[in-house]
Nucleic acid binder design. Structure first.
Lengths: 336, 336
DNA sequence: AGCAAAAAAGTTATCGATAACATCCGGGGC
DNA sequence: GCCCCGGATGTTATCGATAACTTTTTTGCT
């Protein structure tokens, strides 16, 4: 059923080349020829073969690969949306993958995708295997690393500093009079190798700033579990069993913070009077809560959009920015 | 930097064909040749060119296109995750797109993707433009329609019946003694053409069952807004302004139901004593609530997995099931 | 009319992998 | 010694679009 340029050319009594020129809207043909070719192309339902075009050019031209840690993350869903809106409007196709927080899975994905000769890639995070870096450097495709900012990106970087997020939250909580802070985090899924803590830089920034202010971190609990509601609930339970005298707890993300909030309520602890709760990420659903969660809002869609735009600029030969900072915003709320 | 079979062949002193045979793990070469070729391929960092393979075969072989209404939807994020896990394990690549609830945008996306000659497609919903259907029928690629079940799918269908979801909820609420039900929904984004109500079949099933039971739907409010927390909040406000005597309200989804819950609380209405609230979808974050939301849980990941498996079965020439029903589950909760 | 210039159209080569077919070579059977 | 067989390897054609180039036709001008 599929027809190609030659079929149309034969039907129109012209050459393939003329058909190609007409359908790409170039010049070098008469109005009469154009009408005839366009009519036939429409009649036979011609669908161009990008495989052939891409193969001939030895690069896909309009294929962009994007890899995120998890497809089920609300935050990355919005990043993906920002990228998709910006790219699809310009005729690019998006090939996606998930690392499940494993650098090895990322390498496997990059290897698969490179076989399609993508025009560009968007990766999440700044930690990659040496094999991944080799693959990327060997190709001419521009790469945007999003989320964690890198001062020395492979190519380009769009995001924010997790360290600064943690530091800012520490400062804020100290200003609000908190003196005995704890932290509840989550481990990324292991993959044989040691598991990294997710958003570890946030804890570092938090801890360093607390120490500098003279009120060091009292305790922390890192769960080996998906960073969701239940991990927050049980994480706070475990942490308080060890350190009952905390006056504020900083959570890995809003879902976990909400879980912590639920635990505090179940124990009869008043928030924020008895204990403060702070999250991170700016989860939409947090607006469910009767009182606004103290958190850091991450402009996810803007990151996706900026990443797509930086990539496209580079693809068009313009000198895109090497590092784009998308500032996060601490939202005071009523729980911290 | 990129090398091809010929480079390796030259270095190894053999022909391209022999290299191809070795790297694909076939037969017809000596151990000595295999070792030499494999060593060189690794040394030069050979990455096969799937563009060339796909082009030669006149179909991509391992490229699957998937289109969802919104990338930011938590439910579809999980569907996407189910599909990705099932497919990436088998070496397929996933090309995604979003319709933003517009059949025309879906057609545009399908047209773009067909140019890549995908091995198969996964679409969401059963409403497509005639142009989309033509494109799909003209290609040999198998198509899985997910989410809404269709009795007459283009090819295959995996999902559940929205009508039945609505009907089941109506039965449940009547059993709980509700007699004056209302509904709050949301319009899909318009695209010039008339906007369809999202999940319209759910309202139909709800309404039909209520009528049959002798307690017809009293009122409904359909907002022209994203189906989120605020739409639920203001939707209930508007509905109650017109019909103050409702004893239960069924919402388009859990986000909206939670918004409705917030409005009820702000008005001093007791839930479920003064008014019942029911949602749909099984949003994870709903577990945040002090009392469990009455809702219908949709097994999103299972739908994605089943869709991927049905597609792969068809691609392997097996006769996959035409229609796969993934049952939803009504969760009673304490709000309805 | 004649001729140059521009417009319209055609030809050829190319991209990488692979199926299908062709060839080469050594060893065993007669 | 010759022939056949089969394992190892090489050769050719192919897929669709397009860049670069060439040829043909038309137009405009004197």
């Amino acid at each position: 059923m599929k027809s190609n340029l030659e079929d149309i050319a034969r039907a129109a009594g012209v050459s393939k080349m003329t058909v190609s020129r007409v359908l790409r809207g170039g010049t070098g043909f008469s109005d009469e020829t154009r009408d005839k070719v366009e009519k036939i192309a429409k009649a036979v339902g011609y669908v161009p073969n990008r495989l052939a075009v891409a193969f001939g050019a030895d690069q896909s031209g309009t294929l962009v690969g994007m890899c995120v840690p998890r497809l089920t993350s609300g935050l990355f869903g919005h990043v993906l949306d920002g990228v998709d809106r910006a790219l699809s409007r310009l005729g690019y196709q998006l090939m996606i993958g998930a690392t499940n927080h494993s650098a090895d899975e990322e390498e496997a994905w990059v290897r698969q995708v490179m076989a399609w000769r993508p025009a560009g890639l968007i990766l999440s995070g700044r930690t990659h295997t040496p094999g991944t870096v080799d693959l990327l450097r060997a190709s001419a495709a521009p790469v945007v690393e999003i989320w964690d900012l890198t001062t020395s990106p492979i190519d380009m970087s769009v995001g924010f500093s997790h360290f600064d997020c943690g530091a800012e939250m520490a400062q804020f909580l100290i200003r609000r009079g908190r003196r005995r802070a704890g932290f509840v985090g989550a481990l990324a899924q292991t993959d044989g190798r040691g598991a990294d803590m997710m958003g570890a830089a946030r804890l570092e920034g938090f801890e360093a700033t607390l120490s500098r202010a003279g009120h060091p971190l009292i305790g922390h609990e890192v769960l080996h579990d998906a960073p969701g509601f239940y991990a927050g609930y049980y994480g706070l339970e475990t942490l308080l069993a060890r350190q009952a005298d905390l006056d504020v707890v900083y959570f890995h993300n809003d879902e976990m913070a909400i879980g912590g909030l639920a635990y505090a309520q179940s124990r009869g602890l008043r928030v924020p009077e008895d204990i403060g709760i702070a999250g991170w990420g700016g989860m939409e659903a947090a607006s469910i809560l009767p009182r606004r969660l103290t958190t850091t809002v991450v402009p996810t869609t803007a990151i996706g959009k900026a990443a797509a735009e930086a990539l496209v600029a580079r693809l068009k030969g313009e000198a895109g920015p090497e590092v784009t900072v998308i500032p996060t915003r601490l939202v005071p709320g009523e729980t911290g």
